[in-house]
Design a protein around this nucleic acid. Structure first.
Length: 273
DNA sequence: ATGTCGTGAAGGTCACGA
């Protein structure tokens, strides 16, 4: 096996059935090796398996549920291991489809690819009044303990993590520092996962901290483009051993401006393995 | 921060999640 370039992408699609043509457009133009989707919002039986197979993505890991959440990883290569729903084993979280894992073979060894949809956490970042926020923090804590135990190499973690950790990952740190998605306890819990797994935030590896960088713009802001009221909720992390192999990170903002878009833009990395 | 979405069950609109 010879080393070559690989493209790994992640996109919260907000209903895969409604936007499968946008996915096909992305697959065709970017030709990623893997595309990790979040918020597919369908059960496994309703996933457009044949449609994506016709696009060349014959290997698919689908972890869905009716109406809400759900993740899927599309691949042009076979998986050598797979798993799903590794998190949220506690009773109240049993039915959430938020994680799928696949491992694939490269000239640099077997690489593990985790695809996550972290709970958004409801309205206010208040543990007492908001059980969804407690769920979010519990989920991040579970991720931390999982990745602290696991081997800390040859692993890529992507997804909609629903936390914008840096000040310039939101349009106004001052206005949003106590909002869900950017509050101190969430940011600290997310950093715990990064440290536990020895991960690097690839976006910030290539983009300085003083530069604004977003992947999500709310549907409720018609002037989202003009004011750039964005958040960076979507992430691609890689373990330290892989960082030097990454050639590029890209947030493909143009997909947020298509007709009937997802509220998230796709993100991707290119690396030599 | 909320001016918007998508789903599904019910029923021709609403609750829920984001």
């Amino acid at each position: 096996m010879k080393k070559r370039d690989w493209v790994i992408a992640s996109w919260n699609i907000n209903s895969v059935r409604l936007r499968k043509e946008l996915v096909a457009k992305f697959l065709k133009s970017r030709q990623p090796d893997f595309l990790c989707l979040q918020e597919i919002k369908c059960q496994d039986a309703d996933f457009p398996t044949g449609f994506f197979a016709d696009c060349g993505y014959t290997h698919q890991l689908v972890c869905g549920q009716p109406a809400y959440h759900g993740v899927a990883t599309l691949s042009r290569h076979p998986f050598v291991q797979q798993a799903q729903r590794t998190f949220g084993e506690r009773k109240q979280d049993d039915h959430h489809a938020r994680h799928v894992f696949g491992a694939f073979e490269t000239a640099s060894g077997v690489i593990g690819l985790h695809n996550f949809y972290v709970p958004s956490g409801g309205g206010k970042p208040d543990l007492k009044d908001n059980p969804k926020f407690a769920h979010k923090l519990r989920f991040l804590k579970d991720m931390k303990s999982f990745f602290s135990k696991d081997k800390k190499e040859k692993t890529i973690l992507v997804g909609d993590l629903n936390v914008a950790p840096e000040e310039n990952d939101v349009w106004s740190h001052e206005k949003l520092k106590n909002s869900i998605g950017h509050s101190p306890s969430e940011v600290s819990a997310l950093r715990g996962v990064i440290e536990g797994g020895n991960f690097t935030d690839t976006a910030r590896h290539f983009t300085p901290l003083n530069k604004k960088l977003y992947s999500w713009w709310s549907y409720r802001t018609p002037e989202w483009r003009k004011h750039n009221y964005g958040w960076r909720l979507d992430h691609i992390w890689a373990t330290q051993d892989l960082v030097q192999k990454i050639k590029k990170y890209e947030m493909v903002r143009s997909y947020r401006g298509l007709t009937k878009p997802s509220d998230h833009a796709p993100i991707l990395i290119e690396l030599t393995l």
